[in-house]
Structures are given as C-alpha cells and as structure tokens.
Simulated scan of single mutants.
Amino acid sequence: MKFFVILGLLAAVLSFAAAGDYNKGLEEAKEAYPDVIQGTPEVITVEFDNGVFMDLGKNITPTETKNQPKVDWNADKDSYYTLVVVDPDGPSREDNYMRDILTWLVGNIPGKDIAAGDVLYEYVSAAPPKDMGMNRYFYFIFKQLSKLVFDEKRVDRYTIDGRINFSLKNFTIKYELGSPVGFNFDTTYWDQQSNDLYKQLNCCESLM
C-alpha cells in the first residue's frame, strides 16, 4: 500500500514540476513577444537529428541545430498551419538591434506535414555571435484560417535577404494568424557552427 502512495506522491510532484516549467517557459515567451502570444499554447516537440530535444529554454549548441529538426504538434489534418522560427536577441539580448532574426518559415502546412508546406525561408541553424552571450530561438506554430497566398520572396539557406529585422508581429497581422497554438524554445551560445553559417550566408564578418 505504501508503495502505491509513494508512486502517487511522486507523480504529483513531477506533474507540479512540469506545470512550473511550462509556466516559466510561457512567461519568457510572452516577455519576448507580448504582442503576439495570448492564452496558453501547447508545447510542441522539436527533435534534432542527433537525438537532442528542445525543452523550454534548455541550452542547445549551434552545432546540434545544424540540420533541420523534426517538429510535431497536435494538428487538425484538415487545417493549414504556419511554422516560424525567430531569434529576438540578435546580436545580443542587451543590444538586439537585429531582431527578429528569421531562421525558418513554412506556411500552408497541411496538418503537420511540413514537407508538403510552402517553404518561404529555408532552415538555417542557430548562430549566436561570439562573445555576445546567450540567444534564444523560438519555434511557433500558427493555425491558419484558410490556405494563404504568401507574397514574400522565397529565400534559400544560402541567402541572408529578409532574415534580419523580420517582424513576427507584423507578419502575424498581415496574414491574420492570431496567437500561436504551439511553441517551444532553446537557449544557445556561440560555437564554430555560427561562423560556418555566416560563411554559408556570405555575411556578418564583424560577428565572427
């Protein structure tokens, strides 16, 4: 009998801790994007190909984010979604004059089949500058009212155009996306992958 009581107490403690982590993560997301996030979006699953999972502010290195991750959420198969990944801290949290830095943008995702969506900006890794502290990378899922016609120029993974000073707020207003239905984020510091990405994009020499 005592064994089951202990199991029950342990489950309650773990549930309370998980709720605390969610509330803390949501508070940080709302602090970063107060004009975008309303309500209580779900925590989406973001898994990188090296088995590393995003977990509401967990530190992940740029190298670990080098390749496009798998993203999963509770999707309605008959609805369309938009995935946006942004860094509000570029180049640093103290002087974020480059915010938002856009690292991935896919619209018209049927259900949760990202591969079948409309890729507006191809995925690039996290790339915080050297000696400028921690950056955060937020993943947001928005449920569209209908299939959309996006007029943005399509940007590949070798191009910086349009990625700097992207406005998540203006984008959500433009396409009437409302508040995200899902989110997650990580924190990251510079490693060599940052410099490798700058070279790939042919930019940002001053940040190396």
Rank of each mutant, 00 (worst) to 15 (best):
D113T: 12
K169Q: 03
N184L: 03
R154Q: 13
R99H: 14
L201G: 07
K169C: 01
I109D: 14
P110S: 09
P128F: 14
P129F: 05
R99I: 05
N59D: 11
V155I: 15
L102C: 10
T65I: 02
A18H: 11
A17R: 14
G182F: 13
Y22V: 00
K112M: 14
E47K: 03
A17Y: 15
M208L: 13
E176S: 05
Y22G: 00
N195A: 10
D87W: 00
P128R: 11
K77T: 10
V86C: 12
G162Q: 07
D191T: 09
V52K: 02
T40D: 02
N59L: 07
L102Y: 14
P34V: 04
E64R: 02
P41E: 07
V52Y: 01
R99N: 14
V149L: 11
F4K: 09
N165K: 11
D100L: 05
N184T: 01
D186T: 02
N23T: 05
Y189E: 05
Y123C: 06
N165M: 05
Y123L: 07
K112V: 02
N108C: 12
L83S: 03
V181Y: 11
A11S: 13
E152K: 11
L148A: 12
D89F: 04
F138I: 08
Q192W: 12
V124N: 01
E176Q: 03
M134I: 15
D78Q: 09
V84W: 03
G182V: 12
T45D: 15
I141R: 08
S179T: 01
K30D: 10
C204V: 06
Y123W: 09
T188K: 08
F4Y: 12
G51C: 06
G51R: 08
M98H: 10
E64V: 01
M54P: 02
N74F: 07
A32W: 01
Q200L: 06
T159A: 15
E64M: 02
L14I: 04
G25V: 12
T159H: 13
Y33W: 01
A17K: 14
A12S: 14
N50H: 07
P180I: 05
A127R: 13
Y139P: 08
V84F: 03
L105D: 14
M54D: 13
A126Q: 10
L145H: 14
N184Q: 03
L14K: 07
S92H: 03
A17S: 14
S125R: 09
G162W: 08
K147C: 09
F3W: 04
L207Y: 15
P69T: 04
E47H: 00
D78I: 01
T103G: 10
Y22I: 00
A115W: 04
R136H: 15
S79V: 03
I37M: 01
G107L: 06
N170I: 11
L9M: 09
V85S: 05
I44Y: 10
D89Q: 07
N195G: 06
I141K: 07
Y33M: 04
G8T: 11
E31S: 13
Y198R: 04
V155N: 05
I6T: 10
M1T: 10
F4L: 12
R136G: 06
K30C: 06
K174G: 02
L177N: 11
G107K: 10
I141A: 12
Y33E: 01
G20N: 15
P128Q: 12
K58W: 12
S125H: 03
K66H: 07
